[in-house]
Design a protein around this nucleic acid. Structure first.
Lengths: 324, 324
DNA sequence: GATCCGTCCTGGAACGTTCCAGACGTTCCG
DNA sequence: CGGAACGTCTGGAACGTTCCAGGACGGATC
């Protein structure tokens, strides 16, 4: 019982209802110029024959698909998927659907997926990945509005962005640790990507502002580097994201330290990992729900004709838990 | 610099190359009936004007989109996303693309997303969710081939499935624990969904086969229930999935037990959680990569005309780690 | 020199919509 | 009573492809 007979079209409904295809089209779209009686009849008939409009044909005719594309590099990063989910909810509110394409961290694959979405005819593109090559983004922007959401990156002309303020978020962490009495506060990061670098900058700047410029330490999240930090008397570690914070946590516990008594640990992104860690992890939260809404709004403005680039920067918040 | 001028069509390329639109179409699709010289010229011109074929128009004409739809209930469950990724890879190998739709565990939303994908014109549907209402699946199967992947559910006529053998996987766990000398082996589950029930059945059957029918204990993964199990002298707990196994782990550690010395804990699904837990979690692994390939193959067979239902059941494997 | 065949190319119809211009009948107004 | 205005409906063109039937041309064959 696979797809046997061809699906009914407007013409089939029209024939069954004894009216023209145009009228069926108008009735189904709720055009006020259709009398209530006939509209009712047409709706009933359409339902009976199991009519479903062809989005393909509609898109071809109208030149717009009411579809938004979302590109994501990794499906297994809850930070990314939560942003996509918020984009989806926001899109739904304005009658748009979202189709997802994912392409790991392979630039070539990601470029292909972007092309694919554009070829499909999406009306806009939300990119939740910092791995899409700049020139691919620029080319995409010539075909449809594009917004980068939740990923810091070098601004590409013609592309909007929504992001959290990584430097401010990092500063929040430092301030929090300072008020908790910490002085030897180190930063742990393995990233040379834009977001990681911004957080590192924010950390260093905040340390200097707190008069702790002499205690700035940046290390990689491996055991040797951590041991070195602990030897120096470090009492607090701010990791570039939750994943690496959990690594730090594990190493510290293995080394027999008590957290937070002997060592405070703080992460970033406030993913499910932070809530689930033992002890639960203090982390920096981004306004993911707002991000999605903003992204959709920006795309809408572009579709409505805006041409100037807009870059939204949202404030980050600290969620204090047991690890600090 | 948004989408200003309309994108070039076959006609534009034809005009620029001084040939007919039909010839451009043939040349771009590599038809052998086009002379090498003109093909070359057309390709160059197409590239110059930045031509990209409209998938929408092609789909409308051909009646097939070369698109597969994947429906997933939750983006934050690594088990599901990994399956989707494997479907994607397999589809790519046969020249199909995958568009993703996700709809949390809300049956209504999921039904909408299924409709949406079908309206979009996907050639097949891979459902990675046990929350899609049965009648929605049945209706979908009348429009396009549908395969359920990685989710046990009541078989729906007209729909294929690929799954791991939950009962066999559960039996593996019991056998493993028995050879480790455990006798009081309990099962912890909070699920009344098909997969959970199958694992529970498998646990009970394996216990009886091992002559331990008298020690069958099934409990919910909350603290009270766990304490009750421990009071009874339970030395091993098999949890219905990794998430609940981690919960068990946490409670046990909180209670001052050593794992695996005092209590062995085993999960199911072999997600990233199992690798990351402390101690790392023994878990049952499903052949996710094979699942994706099978799913795509089944859809292909349906498209090629198969009408009989096929249900693939793949063997599960045990991955032994530190927790048992 | 007419016929045939192959190679290379062309025009038009179709896919299922939307939308425009206009047709038809009735009512209203001057 | 003629025409404008309205409410309701219709037919055809268009969107950008693919595909089919066939046309033009050259060379080989009879």
């Amino acid at each position: 019982m696979s797809s046997s007979r061809p699906r009914p079209t407007l013409l089939d409904v029209a024939a069954a209802a004894g009216v023209s295809k145009s009228l069926v089209s108008l009735a189904l779209r709720g055009d006020p110029g259709v009398s209530a009686r006939t509209r009712e009849r047409i709706l009933v008939v359409a339902d009976q024959v199991g009519y479903r409009p062809s989005l393909t044909a509609r898109t071809l005719k109208q030149g717009r698909s009411m579809l938004l594309g979302a590109v994501i590099s990794s499906l297994d990063n809850p930070y990314h998927t939560e942003i996509v989910a918020s984009v989806e909810r926001a899109a739904e509110d304005v009658g748009l659907s979202v189709v997802l394409a994912h392409g790991s961290k392979d630039r070539g694959r990601l470029a292909d997926r972007v092309q694919q979405l554009l070829d499909l005819g999406v009306d806009g593109l939300a990119v939740v990945s910092s791995w899409v090559p700049e020139q691919v983004l620029a080319a995409a922007a010539r075909r449809a509005p594009v917004v980068m959401v939740g990923r810091t990156a070098a601004p590409v002309p013609g592309i909007d962005s929504v992001n959290n303020d990584d430097e401010q978020g990092a500063a929040l962490v430092v301030q929090h640790l300072v008020t908790r009495g910490h002085i030897r506060i180190a930063h742990v990061t393995s990233s040379v990507r834009p977001a990681g670098l911004a957080r590192c900058r924010g950390y260093e700047a905040a340390m200097r502002r707190a008069g702790l410029g002499g205690h700035v330490r940046v290390a990689r999240p491996d055991r040797a580097a951590l041991d070195a930090l602990l030897d120096e008397g470090t009492t607090a570690i701010f990791a570039r994201n939750d994943v690496e914070a959990v690594d730090v946590l594990d190493h510290a516990l293995d080394a027999g330290l008590r957290v937070p008594a002997d060592l405070a640990v703080v992460g970033y992104d406030d993913t499910v990992l932070a809530r689930r860690a033992r002890p639960s992890l203090t982390s920096v939260q981004q306004q993911r729900e707002v991000m999605g809404a903003q992204a959709v709004a920006l795309l809408g403005q572009r579709l409505a004709g805006r041409t100037a680039d807009v870059h939204e920067v949202l404030e980050a918040r600290l969620v204090v838990r047991a690890s600090s």
